[in-house]
Amino acid sequence: MAAPMIAIDGLRVRFGAREVVHGVSFSVARGASFGMVGESGSGKSTILRAFAGLAPDWSGAMALDGQALGRRRARDFFRRCQMVFQDPYGSLHPRQTIDRQLAEPLQIQAMDGIDARIRRALEEVGLPASARFRYPHQLSGGQRQRVAIARALITGPEVLLLDEPTSALDVSVQAEVLNLLADLQAARGLTYLMVTHNLAVVAHLCPWIGVMQGGEMVEQLSAADLRAGRVAHPHTAELRALSTELEEAG
């Protein structure tokens, strides 16, 4: 059997003296999507950041496509694995054109055909070619998140780490971005590891879901079980009840 694309085993993460992730294990097969839900402070984003090499004080084991990850991420890691952040206002450089921001990962990875790759990336995320020489403030929030996704995709990664990719967006724009992510996954066979607090969003994009509470993954279940209410842990039940209560009201 092939190694899972993402394997995390007994992961513990500390910030100073405080441990915020207490031994979390899960794996994601190649081309699959795994979503982590939970409230703020539950540790879900920290796991994502630890995998990306942004939380240095961790123990346990993490592997990308069977290769164990160490303290430092090699350059090759970022060609294969990229991250999309929540806030497209904060994650793009305000004084660089979209062209320059899309070129940078290609230069770092010493890839050729930069011009053609940028044109293709913009087209792939549904941005007009005219967006290329604009600055972030000249684009709408949804267009900026498309730029962030284009930047993550431009080196041709196999894994995308998605940290609340739609929570800063209006619901109409959220629908467009979620459809885009689904299309890109189908076209490229990407593996997604997503973090969100929105159960409807996670169930829409991820067939398999981990529920985080207080630094522990208290339950792993399928989206179908979550939808149907076949849940084991009280925290999952509580989150589900809050989400369905509002839906049923409408």
Binding site: A175, N179, A223, L226, T244
Partner: peptide
């Protein structure tokens, strides 16, 4: 219509 739903799965979200 463009909201994803937990109870009623949609294959694809409709876009405004």
């Amino acid at each position: 219509d463009c909201l994803p739903s937990l109870i009623h799965p949609k294959d694809r979200l409709s876009v405004l």
